[in-house]
């Protein structure tokens, strides 16, 4: 029996060929460069995610200049509290070294009380707590305590 190819088949094949090549061309331009390198995402996006600028410099950057504070802190219970915990983001200050670029907490009852106020949910062994309603009323914490060395009492 002679093989007979219906006339619509070559035409269909041409149409399919056009659509498939069109798809491949579009795909080439639409799919981002690094897509699929590690998975179903753009690998270059990880570089984007690593780009944002720092605001918090990290404690090591502080101690490059403030060696004296490191010495003070290392002798007392605030040793494990990093500088930016109270002083806020410090990257700007690390770059400029200006006093105005770093936050200086007031040492008021509210500032220290944020951690040290007596509260039922805090574990006593974790943090020293004072009853702000009874403890030296009217005085700011910083008048007696040095925040870098809290048990080295002033005066």
């Amino acid at each position: 029996m002679k093989f007979y190819l219906p006339p619509q088949i070559p035409r269909l094949a041409i149409a399919f060929g056009i659509f498939i090549s069109l798809f491949l061309v579009l795909r080439h331009f639409l799919v981002p460069d690094t897509f699929g390198e590690y998975g179903h995402y753009r690998a270059a996006s990880m570089i984007d995610n690593a780009k944002p600028e720092l605001h918090y410099a990290g404690q090591d950057a502080c101690f490059k200049c403030h060696q004296d504070i490191q010495d003070k802190k290392s002798q007392d219970v605030h040793v494990d509290i990093h500088c930016e915990s109270c002083h806020g983001p410090g990257e700007k200050h690390v770059i400029s070294s200006k006093v105005g670029d770093i936050f200086r907490p007031s040492g008021s009852r509210e500032v220290c009380g944020k951690c040290h106020a007596l509260y039922v949910g805090k574990v006593k062994s974790t943090i020293a707590q004072v009853d702000l309603a009874k403890h030296n009323i009217g005085k700011n914490c910083i008048e007696c305590h040095n925040p870098h060395q809290p048990w080295e009492m002033k005066k």
Binding site: L54, G58, E84, S85
Partner: peptide, 17 residues
């Protein structure tokens, strides 16, 4: 992620007293 890549701790862990 931007801090991890620079060898720093995440900000929340940096400031946790």
């Amino acid at each position: 992620y931007h801090r991890l890549k620079k060898g720093l701790a995440p900000a929340c862990m940096e400031v946790c007293p």
